[in-house]
């Protein structure tokens, strides 16, 4: 099928380097991948096009790039799906990292963050002579995270990194979870304590971009949520984030419905005078705009709350295993 690849190019060695778009028109099979298309451009139309690629089978993680606005592996993106809306496919380098040349980005900030979470097993000592005995289920669960190929696609499309380059980011957090959830690792508390700091696990905004774009089904945000749950379980020093989750849960348990003012006050803590004062202008504005339901600022419990309470109790006694599907 006739396809146009509209590629964002950048040559740092030009006199005044500036990105520009270049279009290549070529015949491709519907079953070809975008990477096949790019290789065909390089081999038959323009051998100066720079991109990273290697395995062609979505295992090496080299060919992360933005295709029609979303990060993806070029080798895993089919021409047929990329041309659903238009026969022109937009190809750009990944976001949230500097561009070196054409589709090649500088991944060193990515690796720096991976390094930051101390990505190696820290087993308890003494280490057994034979292998560690570990539940099969735990190892299978970890394999869902170990499939991460560090392609950077989740980092490219992370909404938090877009506004704050200091956020540790979805890939590093998923990697951290891989150790936190490893029964052989002995540094859980230390790891979670580090992630409890600003820029860590509580800074994720749960936008699900990473879940959507991850080519390997790792579900980085799900892993971040699991880290948060483990953080709460471990009774780490509370953060605004963990209190928010705790208070939210408590309100639903007791009322069935949310009380925004109560949530805010209890999340910041009654004694956090600075944050509470900070809320006053919003409170005044809300009042002025009559943003208060007829029933008043604080909700009464919904009818049937006793049932909710019983379900809370029953569901949380059961054994916890989070499903990713």
């Amino acid at each position: 099928m006739n396809t146009t690849l509209r590629i964002r190019r950048f040559n740092p060695e030009q006199k005044t380097p500036a990105p520009f778009f270049q279009e290549y028109n070529l015949e491709l099979e519907a079953s070809d991948s975008v990477l096949d298309g790019l290789i065909k451009v390089r081999e038959t139309l323009d051998d100066s096009l720079a991109l990273r690629c290697s395995c062609r089978g979505a295992i090496c993680g080299s060919c992360g790039m933005r295709i029609n606005g979303h990060a993806a592996l070029a080798c895993k993106t089919k021409i047929i799906s990329a041309t659903k809306d238009s026969q022109t496919i937009h190809v750009e380098p990944m976001n949230n990292m500097p561009v070196i040349k054409d589709l090649i980005t500088d991944m060193s900030p990515f690796w720096e963050k991976i390094r930051q979470i101390q990505p190696w097993l820290q087993p308890s000592t003494p280490i057994p002579e034979a292998e560690h005995v570990a539940p099969a289920e735990a190892m299978n669960h970890l394999s869902g995270v170990m499939t991460c190929i560090m392609c950077g696609v989740c980092v490219s499309d992370c909404t938090v990194l877009e506004v704050d380059s200091k956020f540790v980011g979805p890939a590093a957090l998923a990697k951290a979870y891989r150790f936190v959830a490893d029964p052989r690792d002995d540094a859980t508390t230390r790891r979670l304590t580090a992630l409890n700091e600003p820029g860590g696990m509580w800074d994720c905004t749960r936008c699900m971009e990473c879940i959507q774009v991850c080519p390997k089904g790792v579900g980085p945000m799900d892993r971040i949520m699991s880290l948060r749950a483990k953080g709460i379980d471990e009774q780490l020093p509370s953060t605004t984030g963990s209190r928010h989750a705790e208070v939210f849960t408590d309100i639903i348990k007791n009322k069935g419905i949310l009380d925004e003012p109560m949530l805010a006050v209890r999340t910041f803590g009654f004694r956090n005078v600075r944050r509470l004062i900070g809320m006053i202008p919003i409170a005044i504005q809300s009042f002025r705009h009559k943003k208060i339901a007829p029933s008043g600022p604080l909700h009464r419990a919904i009818p049937g709350i006793d049932q909710i309470k019983r379900l809370f109790k029953r569901a949380s006694v059961e054994n916890h295993t989070f499903r990713n599907k």
């Binding site: 087993p123 280490i127 005995v133 570990a134 099969a136 190892m139």
Partner: peptide, 20 residues
Amino acid sequence: IIALEHMGVIFNRNDEGRLG
């Protein structure tokens, strides 16, 4: 194999939790 396991490779386990 054991050294790799100690480094952190998540080898598949059998029902007893040993290497499968």
